[in-house]
Design a protein around this nucleic acid. Structure first.
Length: 559
RNA sequence: GCACCCGUAGCUCAGUGGAUUAGAGCACUGGUCUUCGGAACCAGGUGUCGCAAGUUCGAAUCUUGCCGGGUGUACCA
């Protein structure tokens, strides 16, 4: 439709103007455009006059049942439902909604990158969800996507583990509680280190360093500990990711890149990007990028830092995967760090587009009603606990119905994941058990339920292949119009890496469908209507499944 | 101090590249209802869109300044 208007404008005024159609309040029309207002100034004409001219041409086309002008020069359009359907049919395919914006390009998406020292907690929920959505959105827009779990498996945590294990734990406790014992030991040891530092001591800290040096030196005992603890932690991470139904192709952690850090630093020095201080530390000044502090890439004792392994990672990916862009799905706290890292990469001549797809914090409600960032100090909710609770809740809801275990898990995940996509990812999320398991209103299960209903109706009725040419589709108009919006929703969500646009859209589609059910029957309709309606519901079902899959949510068979 | 983010209904949040009368969910009240699956639908209402200026035919949206909150700010990751 916008093409038609663009052609008219080109013919009337000899200018190329892209036209955006919006969906105004139903009383004004089905579609609206403000293009006349945009054109008025450059053309030096009265906007209403411009609108009149365009409107007259639009009436001539016969495509619209009504063309009116409102206010200062808005053009409101009404279209017959049947023409909308024809429009939908022309665009329809098995991959409706997808596009080829990113064809021929490669993206690396990095998630969920948990720290291995502690058990998977709700703190890791967002990078997994948002990262998965980023991957799916990129794929849906034609990109080749490489996913990589950048595990936090290097550095001080290992030393803390060993020291803590020897001091605060036992074989029996580790045997019994596995990663949870490791997490407990890690937190307790961190606290002990803090206390020691406050008292001016360094005994424990020295031991931690000692173990790290032994590990790097290839010491057998240190390696045995490392291997054992890592195996326990990794098995746990894989287990939780499997329950969350997310995975990555690669799992190249910090430990993999750490040895490559030295070479990266050498490259920084030889290219003149970095400078060495008298104490041996190496920094990259970033004044020209607006930073008042430089980025430290090597400690005075020669050890590597986060920035070092991250730079090595960038170089490795460039060399091996040749990505056009790399998306880091990491929390908002690290915005400053990533802006420094990206500046350093740019200074070194890295061409890859580096994007920090950051997301807001997870807050908890204090007893006095104020919000505060969730922290392990105050007690985090563990991911397995969250999943167990969600599944128990879902099981309770479907009690008495014949719903499989698999479907119960899909419902639980649908609720949890959707709550992460309810708001813009940058918004801080308030974690509370009530809203994360919401089953009504703006929630994952509401949409899943709508999808299940549609599928049931499709399954229970036979679609006859009869000509529906005589059907006007007026009852289905809102649904058809909503379906027509989908490709643009996907395009915008992928462009801005904003999966919540998809969740908002799916909710609107589900609501449209529920309204439709209230007034329109399918199974006992006349055969021509029934065929037309079933065929359309099939399209709705496809969009539900597709859209939810972009969010990592599945449609249950029963619920 | 500086940098980034945020401030929209009682609460949680949408609001595309400015656009006709600012929207959802939750909560509250009433209604629909022998459900093609009611996890539904309909109705009811409250907003100085933090404050103030500016740009514009038009600002929740753009610009600037203030106020309030959050996060970060080289030898942690």
């Amino acid at each position: 439709m916008n093409k038609i208007i663009e052609q008219i404008i080109s013919r009337l005024f000899s200018v190329e103007q892209s036209v955006q159609l919006t969906r105004p309040d139903a009383q004004f029309g089905d579609y609206a455009t403000n293009v006349a207002l945009q054109l008025a100034k450059p053309l030096g004409k009265n906007p209403r006059e411009v609108a009149e001219q365009i409107a007259e041409e639009l009436r001539q086309t016969g495509e619209f049942s009504e063309v009116t002008i409102a206010g200062p020069g808005f053009i409101n359009l009404r279209v017959a439902a049947r023409s909308l359907l024809v429009n939908l049919h022309e665009q329809w395919s098995a991959t409706y909604g997808e596009n080829t914006d990113g064809a021929g390009k490669t993206a690396v998406v990095e998630y969920p990158s948990p720290n291995m020292a502690k058990p998977y907690s709700v703190g890791h929920l967002r990078p997994g969800n948002q990262g998965w959505a980023a991957k799916r959105l990129m794929e849906a827009t034609g990109w080749k996507v490489i996913t990589d779990n950048h595990l936090g498996d290097y550095g001080a945590p290992f030393g803390i583990w060993v020291v803590g294990f020897l001091k605060f734990s036992s074989e029996a406790a580790l045997e019994k509680d596995g990663v949870y014992e490791l997490g407990r030991v890690y937190i307790e040891t961190k606290r002990a280190l803090k206390d020691e530092k406050e008292q001016g001591g360094s005994d424990l800290a020295d031991q931690v360093q000692d173990w790290l040096i032994r590990l790097e030196g290839g010491d057998e005992e240190a390696q045995a500990y490392s291997k054992r603890f890592n195996e326990i932690s990794l098995a746990h991470i894989h287990g939780v990711m499997k329950r969350l139904k997310i995975d990555t192709q690669y799992e190249l952690g910090e430990a993999f890149f750490a040895p490559k850090g030295k070479e990266a630093v050498r490259k920084l020095l030889t290219s003149g990007v970095a400078t060495q201080n008298d104490d041996g530390s190496i920094i990259v000044p970033l004044d020209e990028y607006g930073f008042d502090v430089p980025l430290l890439v090597q400690k005075s004792n020669g050890a590597a830092l986060y920035a070092t392994t991250d730079l090595a990672t960038i170089l490795y990916r460039e060399e091996n995967w040749h990505p056009d862009r790399v998306i880091y799905v990491v929390a908002a706290e690290q915005q400053f760090y990533f802006s420094q890292l990206f500046a350093m990469a740019k200074k070194l001549g890295v061409q890859t587009e580096l994007i920090h797809m950051w997301f807001g914090l997870i807050d908890q409600l204090n007893e006095d009603g104020t919000r505060e960032k969730m922290s392990s100090r105050k007690g985090v909710v563990l991911m397995e606990e969250l999943l167990d609770t969600a599944e128990a809740k879902a099981r309770e809801i479907v009690a008495g119905r014949d719903v499989s275990d698999d479907d119960i898990k899909k419902i639980a995940l649908g609720a949890i994941k959707f709550s992460d996509f309810a708001a813009d990812r940058r918004t801080n999320i308030l974690f509370d058990w009530e809203s994360i398991f919401a089953l009504t209103g703006f929630s994952g299960p509401y949409i899943q339920y709508a999808a299940v209903r549609v599928n049931k109706i499709i399954a229970d009725n036979i679609l006859e292949t009869i000509d529906t040419i005589g059907y006007d589709y007026e009852a289905e108009k809102q649904i058809i119009a909503k379906l027509l919006e989908y490709p643009n929703v996907v395009r915008l969500a992928a462009r801005d890496l904003e999966p919540h646009k998809v969740s908002n859209y799916l909710y609107e589609l589900a609501r449209e469908l529920n309204r439709y059910y209230e007034t329109t029957r399918v199974s006992d309709a006349e055969s021509i209507e029934k065929a037309a309606r079933l065929e359309l519901l099939g399209k709705v079902s496809q969009v539900f499944t597709h859209g939810l899959s972009l969010l990592g949510i599945e449609v249950p068979t029963q619920m």
